[in-house]
Design a protein around this nucleic acid. Sequence first.
DNA 1: GCATATTGTGCGAACGTTCTCACAATACAA
DNA 2: TTGTATTGTGAGAACGTTCGCACAATATGC
Lengths: 366, 366
Amino acid sequence: MAEKRIDKATITEVARLAGVSTATAGRVLGGYGYASDEIKKKVKASAERLGYRPNLLARGLITGKTKTIGVVAGDIQSPFYSSILRGVADVARAEGFGVLITNSDELLARELEAVQLLLEKQVDGLIVAPCDTERSDHLRKALKEGCPIVQFDRMVNGLRADAVTVDNRRASREAIASLIEAGHRRIAILAELERWDSGDIASFVARVTSRSIEPANLFPSWQRLFGYVEAHLAAGIEIDRALIGRVGAYSLEAARLQALQLLRLPGRPTALFTADGLMTAGAIDAITSLGLAIPDELSLIGFDDLDWMSFLKPAITAVVQPLTAMGETAARLMLDRLSGSESPPRHVTLELSLTRRGSVARARLS
Amino acid sequence: MAEKRIDKATITEVARLAGVSTATAGRVLGGYGYASDEIKKKVKASAERLGYRPNLLARGLITGKTKTIGVVAGDIQSPFYSSILRGVADVARAEGFGVLITNSDELLARELEAVQLLLEKQVDGLIVAPCDTERSDHLRKALKEGCPIVQFDRMVNGLRADAVTVDNRRASREAIASLIEAGHRRIAILAELERWDSGDIASFVARVTSRSIEPANLFPSWQRLFGYVEAHLAAGIEIDRALIGRVGAYSLEAARLQALQLLRLPGRPTALFTADGLMTAGAIDAITSLGLAIPDELSLIGFDDLDWMSFLKPAITAVVQPLTAMGETAARLMLDRLSGSESPPRHVTLELSLTRRGSVARARLS
DNA sequence: GCATATTGTGCGAACGTTCTCACAATACAA
DNA sequence: TTGTATTGTGAGAACGTTCGCACAATATGC
């Protein structure tokens, strides 16, 4: 015959039932002070009987710690963010933390709003994929208010906060190098390449060439283009700007159209490097509709490894990002901060690996 | 010259600076009572100057409302849950609610733990994909404590709580019917079909045939099998149990193996119905490795529409689930409850649509 | 003119915890 | 014995809000 308490029991009621003070009951229930075994038993029994459930709000109010981490992702619906989120959630759960999520859709205004909500909810820390690597007053302010931040995927310029990223530039350089080694000379790249304030593609290429650009605060797709350029430079291959497909938006359709344009070029590229999963999808769509054979007529390497890439025929050679590991790392960095670490900002760069499947062939002699 | 307050300002400090009582400051900042325009202006200015940020913990403690919804998903990493989550998050955000997420991995113990955490964090409501449609004391208890619940994807037997599901049975029946209409007689089904306590596939089929089973509380894959059986019944086609591929686990590899087995059957089926996205992926993998041509040698309809299905060659005919809509609906049901609705439990069933692409052909005359 | 709303303000008590003390009782060392 | 830890307990004040109330001033109804 279970009690049918419709209201929740508080520590005070448990204490009364057990015949001790609220302070004592609090100590045993919260596990933070002395209590004799006898009293412990009595309090626990009372708590059990009343169906006591601690109120973490009240605890948080007084301790100043909510054991909650706020996450600002771009779009949890995407495999990219959802995998990262999973990593964060796993580590958080193991440590008894909750995870509060928000989507920015890569819009600064949304990010602002999200950060504000999370801060008002008194999260202990913020894990953010910042959507602007320059304008970040809100993040600095959060930091100043004592709320630690861990960035992932990209890094705000000069923000003194931990970060987890991936070695985009190097992975891209190596992927391109492997295509070059396979004899390809006309290699196209299909990439998002939104938001770069300092000019057009030509000037970006020029600045990479003259080594007058710092890649750390670039958005991933730009870093991947950076590696693309470097690989060409290293091999002494001149860059044909027509082969750089700047999608300029993050949608399947835009990617498809840009891919179509690249593949219809007079001197069609013999290889294509797609700088992210969505770009790969758009490219495949275009390639299919054009009836091009992979890898005979076109070699393909994609950034991001999505499930379907391994059972497509042929399977697609891809750069795989350790997404859940990225989330786990971010969460660990955060938990480390929360347990008091005062070390200077740490930047973890995860390595990427190229999974060779069947979408790359040697270029035919021209 | 921004203030460099390292501590957070409270309503008390704002009140002091503005020269009013905390009650008055609270009223203007919280927007819940009278205040003259003059005072409003003064308080807002002070708040601005001190960088005041409301503490939602304190507010929640006193109002008993945290404006936070807890979500228990199976695995946010999967496209299924992440899309639903996105829908929930969107609606929640629009109404100023936060979303606290947890993963159950479809394990009851995990779900228990998750629900407990969320309840302790005092969420206003719980949106859950229950992993057991029978054992649900934790959910009933939550309900009794006044925490509303919205279930999605499946429904606990006899739980007086709102629910959003999808018309699995009908969509499946119609998909199968369309295959039958295309002349197929040997149609295989590849489905998860875990957890059903009441016997094996044969007895399930028998009970569907004798109409002695209530589909409402079945897990989706069983409901889809239900529709499969019904469609056969309606067309007067006898069911060959060998064509029912029970994967029994939720993994790509298990699906692939079971698909392989189905497709190697002596009298190979001429059509395959995969009961969910992962099953479809496993099937495609198997079909590819067997070198079977779709749709000429095998017609295929899959439940769930994943991005890659539209650019595979041929594109795959699929039953599309309105996932974000499901999340949005769940959130709306919840918000409705939270704004006081006392109506009896509502059950929203979303309709599914079959997107016909290129993976179905007429069966060749046998 | 008076009764009654409506608007505006402040005091102090909640909310359910943990924290800081004060104080006992016991243990152990010198 | 005395002193000093260590262990155990309770009273009461925090934490940062909102809420109930008291009260004043002004507006509205007739």
